[in-house]
Amino acid sequence: KLETFPLDVLVNTAAEDLPRGVDPSRKENHLSDEDFKAVFGMTRSAFANLPLWKQQNLKKEKGLF
C-alpha cells in the first residue's frame, strides 16, 4: 500500500514540491480512503470505472492533476 498524505500536501502542488515517492500523475493514489471519498464523492472503485477522460477532468477540477 502506498503512503498517504493529507489533502493540502497534494492539492495544487507542483511535481517538484510533492513528497518523495509521489507520482505527480497519480496524486489521488496517495489520499486516504476517507479523503478520496470526500474529494471525489465516490469510492476508488467507482472512480476507476469512469472513462479516463472523466477521471482526468475530475482530477483537474479538484487540483489533483
Rank of each mutant, 00 (worst) to 15 (best):
V9E: 15
V39Y: 06
D33F: 01
T13I: 05
T43L: 01
M42Y: 10
P51H: 01
M42R: 03
F5H: 15
M42E: 00
P51D: 06
L64D: 04
D17Q: 09
P6R: 06
D33M: 00
E61R: 06
P51S: 07
T4H: 11
L58Q: 02
N57A: 13
H30A: 07
L58M: 15
N49Y: 06
Q56G: 05
G41F: 03
L18S: 05
F65K: 09
R44V: 02
K60G: 08
A14N: 07
T4R: 09
M42A: 04
D35F: 00
V9S: 08
N29R: 12
P51V: 00
N49G: 12
D17K: 08
N49E: 15
F36I: 00
R20N: 14
N12H: 09
F40N: 01
L64K: 08
S32P: 02
Q55K: 05
N29S: 08
E3P: 15
G41A: 09
L50K: 03
L10G: 07
K37F: 11
M42V: 07
E16K: 08
S45V: 14
R20H: 13
K60A: 14
T43K: 12
N49T: 13
A48V: 10
H30V: 03
A15N: 15
L10D: 07
P6C: 06
L10V: 06
P24C: 07
Q55W: 00
R20F: 12
S32R: 05
L58H: 02
Q55R: 08
G21K: 10
S45K: 11
S32E: 04
P24Q: 08
T13V: 11
P6A: 10
V22G: 03
F5R: 08
K60E: 14
A38W: 08
E16A: 10
T13C: 14
K54P: 00
K59I: 04
R20D: 13
M42N: 00
W53T: 14
D23E: 03
L2R: 15
E16W: 03
T4W: 02
M42F: 04
L10T: 06
K27D: 05
F40P: 01
Q55H: 00
K59A: 03
K62I: 10
G41P: 00
K60D: 07
L2T: 15
K59S: 03
E61L: 09
G21I: 07
V9N: 11
K62R: 10
W53A: 14
A46R: 07
V11N: 07
D17L: 08
K27A: 08
L52P: 13
S25A: 12
K27F: 06
R20Y: 08
S32H: 10
K60I: 08
V9K: 13
K37T: 09
D33G: 03
W53S: 15
F65W: 13
E16M: 05
P6F: 01
A15T: 14
F65A: 15
A14C: 11
A46P: 02
G63P: 01
F40L: 02
K60Q: 11
N29E: 14
E34P: 11
D8S: 13
A15M: 06
P6H: 08
A14R: 14
T13L: 08
L18H: 03
E16T: 09
K60F: 10
M42I: 12
A15V: 10
F36L: 01
Q56H: 13
A48C: 07
L31K: 00
A46E: 15
N29I: 08
P24I: 06
D35N: 05
E16H: 09
T4D: 06
P19R: 02
R26M: 08
V39P: 00
L18F: 02
T4N: 06
D23Q: 02
N12G: 09
F47N: 00
L7P: 12
P24L: 06
D33V: 06
V39W: 05
L52D: 14
E3C: 08
W53M: 05
V11T: 07
L31W: 00
L2A: 15
A46H: 12
A48M: 11
F40E: 00
Q56I: 13
G21H: 08
H30Y: 14
D17E: 11
L10N: 03
E34K: 14
S45H: 12
T4E: 15
D23F: 00
H30D: 04
H30F: 10
T4G: 05
V11L: 13
E61P: 02
R26A: 15
F47I: 00
K59W: 03
L58Y: 06
K60L: 11
W53D: 12
L7V: 08
H30E: 05
F65C: 15
G63S: 06
A48S: 10
F36S: 02
V11K: 13
S25K: 13
L52R: 08
S45F: 09
K1C: 03
E28W: 02
K37G: 10
H30G: 06
V11Y: 07
L10R: 07
L7Y: 13
S45Q: 13
K60N: 06
V39G: 01
S45A: 09
E28G: 03
N49M: 08
K37W: 11
D35C: 04
L10Q: 10
T13P: 05
A46G: 10
F36C: 00
D8E: 15
K1L: 02
G63D: 08
A14F: 02
S25Q: 08
F65D: 14
F36Y: 04
K54V: 10
F5Q: 14
P6N: 12
R20L: 09
D35M: 02
V11I: 13
N29K: 12
V22W: 03
V11C: 07
D8W: 07
D33R: 03
N29Q: 15
G41C: 13
D35K: 01
L50W: 01
V39H: 07
